[in-house]
Design a protein around this nucleic acid. Structure first.
Lengths: 197, 197
DNA sequence: AAGTCCATCCTACTTCGAGTAGGTTACTGG
DNA sequence: CCAGTAACCTACTCGAAGTAGGATGGACTT
């Protein structure tokens, strides 16, 4: 698969291989059921190497999550570059998000696992990676809010809402990213007042 | 503590004791770091009893989660009984939710752990317990939506948004349940359009 | 009052996986 | 060709999930 014979490989590349395999295994088996032995074997390396490079199972998951978050952030940020207004930026960002979770299944599945680290030493790190996402939204939201605290709260609100909506979408393959964006944008922009009888 | 000497106790009550202790231990240590041995010891019983009654560690967590979800559902449902409109019901439900997570720390902390079961056989059960929450919201939302799918999506949207907002609130003890409700209700009801320049 | 039956409960394992100690070999630069 | 180091390994320990198989309190019968 990888290369024919077990050869020596520089650290940077091994790390990439390890993360790639780990991402797959964590996604397939779930964090708890995944074993470091299995990951090591699939990489074609012995277990202590994993510990050498990531010091713990949590550390390995964290590395995977970091990468996936970075990819997500990259995708959503790129999407907003040509936006003509805050509303437009929001819509584009949402669409990019829903496209991402549809196309990059493993990455998204991994991000859903981050809650498995609650209560562990890695929890702070996780919050840090989430910040990447909320900061992006805060930047857009501050267009609408003078109150700093309220802007932050609203950003969390949006992120949580969309994550949950994304999970819901997985049960309905017919719901396109465009539809999801529409649902979300309609709620965020117009609110419920417009629908009141 | 419980009663002086290790006496025989009927199953129903033992289960209650076990869940009570487990809730505390899972919350304090986190799911992964909690040990069945420790829980058994704190209950004052041997480990096989836990397995007799809950068959696995996951099963025990699931039982705890079910109970906490039931309490949350009860609290939010009760809150909406005297509502004069859907808008009012929504606001009351939100307030009850934010009060709940402030007052019943362990229960809420436990619910945050449910993601730890993603990818395990218990995942379906978990989705089931979430339904209790979303169904309640769907009932309120259907006031606003003709489209059934959209109503469900919006309910998920609301639940996700509020859960995330609740997690955020934990970092700011000064943010009262009333403020959180206001933040959420403002977004949900008025939307962002009202704030556009 | 003694015997039967079962729900409650226990001790003493097995198994499996996270994490580690300590050594070995390939490549790299002089 | 000889360091020296970066990549790598075998062979463990240790702790926690889960189990086998048996013991015992006590309720109910006769």
């Amino acid at each position: 698969m990888t290369t024919a014979k077990r050869k020596r490989v520089p650290r940077a590349e091994r790390e990439r291989q390890m993360i790639e395999v780990a991402e797959r295994v964590f996604t397939e088996r779930g964090y708890g059921a995944a074993s470091m032995d299995e990951i090591a074997e699939l990489v074609g390396v012995s277990k202590p190497m994993l510990y050498e490079y990531f010091h713990s199972k949590e550390g390995l998951l964290l590395a995977c999550i970091r990468q996936s978050r970075a990819a997500l952030r990259e995708a959503t940020e790129q999407a907003t570059v040509g936006a003509v207004s805050a509303e437009d930026a929001l819509r584009r960002g949402l669409l990019a998000f829903f496209v991402f979770i549809r196309e990059r299944r493993e990455a998204w599945s991994l991000l859903r696992h981050e809650m498995a680290l609650i209560g562990t030493p890695a929890a702070d790190e996780i919050e840090q990676t989430r910040r990447q996402q909320t900061d992006l939204i805060v930047a857009v939201m501050s267009e609408y809010f003078d109150d700093e605290l309220r802007a932050e709260a609203s950003a969390e609100f949006v992120v949580g809402a969309c994550e949950r909506l994304a999970i819901w979408c997985e049960r309905f393959p017919d719901v396109t990213p465009e539809m999801a964006t529409d649902y979300a944008m309609d709620m965020l922009w117009s609110g419920l007042s417009r629908r009141a009888r």
